[in-house]
Amino acid sequence: MPLIELRGVWKIYDSGSMRVVALRDVDIDVEEGEFVAVVGPSGSGKSTLLHIIGGLDRPTRGIVRVAGIEVSSLRSDTELCKYRNELVGFVFQMFYLIPRLTALENVELPLIARGLDPRERRTKALEALRLVGLEHRAHHRPAEMSGGEQQRVAIARAIVTEPKLILADEPTGNLDSANARAVMDLFEKLNKALGVTILLATHNLELLSYCDRAIRLVDGKVAGIYDRERYDELIALSSKRLREHDST
């Protein structure tokens, strides 16, 4: 049974005068332990897809199942929060660390939500920071760290609960190439060593080398699913679309 299973998922934003279809009849399966990229141009629905899988947003129609839980049918705030806390780790482009908290305190946040004993959560948070190589920066605030370090702290926050799934939305979008590589190496390590399933939304096709598969979204629809052997085809297709976009 796949870890992530999407069947006929639609997401329509209806604000009265405007109707925007973000996802159209999306069917996706992701196996446990896979590292999958979600690629596509801006507005293609990558972030929406991640938000729906992560239980931050609800699909308008369709079924979303993660680790056997039918996320699309979770209604109560408590159920959704428990799901997000226990099964999913989020990593965002802008890191979204809380400025007044130290790296350690930021990493502890999901464990605070879980109501864990302070000593236990400190041990776990330090372990997560050690895993991302930032144990020595535990008591520094985000403003005292580089972008790469901040993103690694964000990754530590995502993995501290030992989730089955990490949803990374353009995690390297705000980093230079060296830091981007460091972050991707870290994702690869988590995926390979800990078996964490990673779904990575990105514009950057250079990152495909880290991924087992790539799902291409265009206008909210799955336009193709590519394995490593077909990455060249995907890169060529994306470059062509980019050229078309530039000429118009």
């Binding site: 705030d77 997000r84 806390n85 226990e86 979204y96 809380i98 946040l109 999901p110 939500a113 879980r114």
Partner: peptide
Amino acid sequence: VREIGVLKAVGFTSRD
């Protein structure tokens, strides 16, 4: 606002 978004993303309930 964004902090609240992060808190909810990591598992804080609306009640929290």
